[in-house]
């Protein structure tokens, strides 16, 4: 392993990378996906697109904050338990700094017109980033008609009903197992 590679893989690098992500993620865990892909998949190649998506899927069904869960998955994947801790601390550190600053000195920060206008622009941008990321992930995740049906059913359930995402995730996993098993037996 060259010095540069080693440096890229260090705990400090994990911490700083997730620090950066925590600082520019506006919204919930899903808003982190585009920047996560950029940093973790493209820049450092810590995991491929499918792996990141798998981590998202499992994180949805686990307790805890989704963004933190995904960070721990990637950190653990690279550097075991210390890596998971470094990534989790990285993603929460900017929050601690920023929120403390706001709570301590910037009363009514959220009502400031400049903040409001900037957020109006940022939310549009986050939508465009997510749309672009989903387009990129589509081919890798929706591979056939069955996958497309699962996608449609999940999107409809999540949009139109109040069913919890945990149940949806568990049902999708069971559906995957059953469908593939039936397909395999038919072939045999």
């Amino acid at each position: 392993m060259s010095d540069l590679e080693q440096k890229n893989d260090s705990l400090l690098r994990l911490y700083l990378t997730f620090f950066k992500m925590g600082m520019v993620t506006f919204g919930g865990g899903y808003a982190m996906l585009p920047i996560l892909e950029r940093e973790v998949v493209e820049k450092y190649r810590w995991a491929d697109k499918e792996k990141v998506l798998d981590y998202y899927a499992v994180s949805q069904g686990l307790p805890g904050i989704i963004a933190v869960n995904v960070a721990v998955f990637i950190g653990y994947h690279r550097k075991k338990v210390p890596g998971g801790i470094a990534a989790a601390l990285g993603v929460v550190s900017p929050c601690i700094l920023i929120i403390t600053l706001i709570a301590a000195c910037l009363q009514n920060f959220q009502n400031n017109p400049y903040v409001q206008h900037a957020l109006g622009g940022i939310s549009v941008c986050v939508c465009a980033l997510i749309a672009s990321t989903l387009l990129g992930l589509w081919k890798k995740s929706v591979k056939d008609v069955t996958g497309f049906v699962i996608f449609l059913v999940v999107a409809a359930l999540s949009l139109l009903t109040e069913i919890s995402p945990i149940l949806i995730v568990i049902a999708a996993a069971i559906a995957g197992i059953l469908i593939r098993e039936v397909q395999r037996r038919r072939k045999a």
Partner: peptide, 30 residues
């Protein structure tokens, strides 16, 4: 095999969930 098949179902599902999360942002912001 069991695990791979579970993820075969999970991947399109999580795309659906993220899409709907994105649509919620669209709804409130656009």
């Amino acid at each position: 095999r069991l695990m791979d098949n579970a993820f075969y179902g999970l991947r399109p599902a999580v795309i659906g969930l993220i899409l709907v999360a994105g649509l919620t942002v669209v709804q409130t912001s656009f």
